[in-house]
Design a protein around this nucleic acid. Structure first.
Lengths: 233, 233
DNA sequence: CGCGGGCTTGAACCTCGTCAAGAAGTGTGG
DNA sequence: CCACACTTCTTGACGAGGTTCAAGCCCGCG
């Protein structure tokens, strides 16, 4: 799909394109195509050649790694404004994971081969990308620390708080996670089973920390949840 | 310590400095200082301002995160040729972890403020850094997947194989990990306890997979260990 | 209204962490 | 060179936390 009617304002405020001139932005946009993803559709698939990279305009994705025996791990979530699928920029030839749309989503797509051209045009782009990837590395290390040292309840608390951070939406009942989340999803974020997540969350519900139903999570008392996540007791 | 007698060949072959001209290399070296680290000494400490970044010339470091309650997690190992402490390049103001010398080590150090100058001089440096950080991100995701889905024995197997990869040295008994490794270290790499690691490794020893003693690990049968790490059965 | 995907809950089981004690190396000072 | 202290490693017993297995419920949708 051609993209000649895209406006600069779409990407003007994105972290990654910070400090680029209007002209450069227009050039970048001219090379982009638009990709619409239905719920459940994937932008790219684990193991396939990394031919494109993306920037999410709206919607929400999860990036999933599947083990040989079929278990799934949610590596991270992609929020509007994030770039993703930049495997090729790290000189990997294949995507290491699959990006699945949680809700109907819209993304810009560029050919991987254009990455170098972008950099040449605007060197700060590389620095911005480095910062982005650096942040993700920090996040990954945090999760490693959590998985290594914390028990399930605290890990789930951290996961939910992270969701609040990324997609929290104030309502009069509390803070709603603004896209469908199943127990299974949370299990895949925390390295546990949907059963355990269910037990943990019903306990929280009894204590008035959260309120949840099918694919829906509302955090009633973020502060107490935070205390539970941090202070081990 | 001044470094005007450093030779280009020191860093000519390092991944990160690939494709730089001799002149640029000399410039980079001119700004470097040399840092010697005794065993147990640290190049930088978690939480302190990120004033420098480094490149390991020889020796071996581990990068450790400490939780508020004092538990430690080994984030990664630094091998000769690796750059480390590049927090500032990712626009973080503080080091997120501590780098401890496992054996006496020698590193080059630069002021963090010089990073931008380096990039300006040689833009490919940013791309190389991006690749390096990208690789680390992949590794981190692998560990997350392992911690989420695998049982202790397989995680320990993976950790040992990773050590072999990084510091394996052929001897007539088998492949020796070329620096001191305690059960505790392996526990901190795999999110378990030294007790469990000890049990696992004595079992392996009985099966003829490895041979180990105080701070020493020799892998006798890497292939069978690999099978154990991959094939869940 | 019935079907299916998601959620809950109990009970049995099992891995692994915790507690405890001691053995085997390593280093240090007299 | 020996004695003592310290660190590392081993091993057993026990129990808690979490997974697995199984059954059934609930809600939303066709």
């Amino acid at each position: 799909m051609a993209a000649n009617k895209l406006d600069r304002s779409l990407i003007r405020n994105l972290m990654i394109f910070q400090q680029m001139s209007d002209e450069d932005l227009d050039n970048v946009l001219a090379m982009a195509s638009v990709r619409q993803l239905p719920e459940g559709g994937s932008a790219f698939t684990q193991g396939e050649p990394a031919t494109e990279f993306f920037c999410l305009l709206n919607g929400r994705l999860k990036v999933v790694q599947t083990t040989p025996d079929g278990q799934q791990v949610v590596v991270r979530h992609v929020n509007p404004g994030d770039i993703f699928g930049i495997a090729k920029a790290m000189r990997r030839t294949e995507y290491p994971a699959t990006a699945v749309a949680i809700v109907e989503s819209l993304a810009l797509a560029w050919k991987s081969t254009q990455w170098e051209a972008f950099i040449a045009r605007s060197p700060t782009l590389a620095l911005n990308a480095l910062q982005t990837v650096g942040q993700r590395l920090q996040d990954a290390h945090s999760r490693i620390r959590e998985l290594s040292t914390e028990e399930v309840e605290r890990r789930v608390a951290h996961a939910v708080l992270r969701l609040v951070q990324q997609a929290g939406k104030k309502t009069d009942e509390g803070i709603l996670i603004d896209f469908p989340v199943t127990r299974q999803d949370i299990a895949e974020m925390t390295g546990t089973t949907l059963h355990t997540v269910s037990r943990v969350m019903t306990a929280w519900e009894a204590k008035g920390l959260v309120q949840s139903s099918r694919k829906k999570v509302i955090v009633i008392d973020p502060h107490r949840l935070y205390v539970l996540a941090e202070h081990s007791e």
